[in-house]
């Protein structure tokens, strides 16, 4: 005797269950990003705070524009190197250009990432500031990836870390400031740029009056040019 069981309904039911589980599953687990903020303790004295050389300091000021629906339209990063230059000797209401125009003058950039393997926007600026570290890490990476290389992953990580924290190379100190309007995504992007450009010395700080004045001046200069 030949017994046949029809499995078609069984398959139907299984397919339904599979589609249910597929829709309900979150395959991608959230990632996290570690942040360490300075303590709010007012008792810490100024002299205890780490001071950075002026030539190494980079300040980023983040701000965002929103459209009518409240979604982010555009993120802008203002940046300057060293101390801000706040002189206005000719009295035209706009800040003057200092003797060394590369320091202390506010510029604006965007987050654009890479294009055909070349850094664009703010990434290229930070890349240039941290070039000596990145070059060393690149050559280390080449050595590590070379066929027949004896270097283990752990050794590579340890050596890369040593390069990143090597105080004999000139490395930038980045201060990230955000205006109240800056979107959360832009802050995460800024922290990302630190990781991508292997910058180990950075901090998130509060925006102050000087920064707002610089941005206002930048906007004024832009509209004067038009």
């Amino acid at each position: 005797m030949d017994i046949h069981v029809d499995f078609t309904p069984m398959v139907d039911m299984n397919m339904l269950l599979i589609s249910f589980f597929m829709l309900c599953t979150t395959m991608i687990k959230s990632q996290t990003l570690n942040i360490t903020l300075p303590s709010n303790d007012k008792n810490i004295e100024q002299k205890d705070l780490a001071k950075a050389a002026e030539s190494e300091a980079v300040t980023l000021i983040l701000t965002s524009d929103y459209d009518q629906n409240g979604s982010v339209e555009d993120n802008t990063i203002y940046y300057f190197f060293g101390k801000p230059y706040m002189e206005d000797a000719d009295g035209d209401g706009l800040l003057d250009t200092p003797e060394d125009p590369s320091m202390g003058v506010l510029h604006a950039e965007k987050f654009v990432g890479d294009k055909e393997g070349v850094q664009q926007g703010i990434r290229s600026i930070l890349h240039k500031r941290n070039e000596s570290v990145l070059e060393k890490i690149d050559s280390l990476k080449k050595e590590w990836r070379r066929p027949g290389s004896q270097m283990t992953d752990a050794e590579f990580e340890a050596q890369a870390k040593a390069i990143r924290n090597d105080s004999t190379i000139s490395r930038p100190v980045v201060v990230i400031k955000a205006t109240p309007e800056a979107s959360w995504a832009s802050i995460i992007s800024a922290l990302d740029e630190m990781q991508i450009n292997q910058i180990t010395r950075y901090q998130i700080n509060e925006i102050n009056g000087v920064d707002s004045a610089l941005i206002q001046d930048y906007v004024n200069k832009q509209s004067a040019q038009r």
């Binding site: 990632q31 996290t32 990003l33 570690n34 995504a185 995460i188 992007s189 922290l191 990302d192 990781q195």
Partner: peptide
């Protein structure tokens, strides 16, 4: 909707 980052540390 959380922002995206290059960090690869899992929750």
């Amino acid at each position: 909707i959380t922002p995206s980052s290059v960090s690869e540390i899992k929750v």
